[in-house]
Simulated scan of single mutants.
Amino acid sequence: MSDIDERPAARVVCLDRDGRVLLMHWYDHVAGAEVWEPPGGRLEPGETPLEAARRELTEETGLPGSAVLDRHVEVDRDFRWLGTRFVKREVFYLARFDGERPAVDPGELTQEESAAFRGHVWAEELPPGVEPPELAQVVERLTRDLR
């Protein structure tokens, strides 16, 4: 039986000018599963969720953390990654970019992330295996009243 990780985390739903969603592509070699999810990760000690979202965006994508808006929704998550079960509430923030498919440069990945990273996509439609499964509803909630 694996441990349960409940440490808080923050993610960023990035939208380009045409409404495409940035998804990071990962491979869980323990489960043999491909995962697509918005950039993000756990909070460092003393960090707020917004600070973590901005830091993680820059580390994982090279995009400016300043693009992350102070607009969020909370999402209950229960998933497995590399043999660990994660049960937590994650804060999802919104970042919008004026350009079409801004360049992504994941230059600050950890060793574990680098081993699992398979690329990224600016998705017009969410692929099978997207995490969280209700990401379309998260995007809708984050963008409501912004159009």
Rank of each mutant, 00 (worst) to 15 (best):
M24K: 02
F92K: 00
L22I: 03
T61A: 10
D98F: 08
E56C: 05
E34C: 10
P127V: 07
L135V: 05
L22A: 07
G107M: 07
P45S: 09
H120V: 08
D28H: 07
L57H: 02
D28K: 04
V138K: 00
V121M: 12
D5E: 13
D3H: 05
E6I: 11
T110M: 00
C14I: 09
V139T: 03
E60A: 08
W81V: 01
D105Y: 12
R11D: 10
P128G: 12
T84N: 09
G99D: 11
W122E: 06
W36S: 09
L109K: 07
V13H: 07
F86P: 00
R20I: 01
T84E: 15
V13D: 04
A52I: 12
R101K: 13
S114C: 10
H72L: 07
E6S: 15
E51Y: 02
F97P: 00
G32Q: 08
R147W: 14
I4H: 08
T61M: 06
E100T: 14
G107D: 06
G32H: 14
V121Y: 04
R147E: 15
V21S: 01
A123N: 11
E113V: 10
V121W: 01
P106E: 03
V35R: 14
E59F: 09
T58Y: 13
T143G: 03
D28E: 08
E51A: 15
E59A: 12
D76W: 09
Y27P: 00
Q137W: 00
A116C: 12
R77E: 15
A9C: 03
A116T: 11
E134T: 04
D145M: 01
L22C: 09
A33Y: 10
D18N: 10
V130I: 12
C14H: 05
T48L: 05
R71Y: 05
L94V: 05
T48I: 04
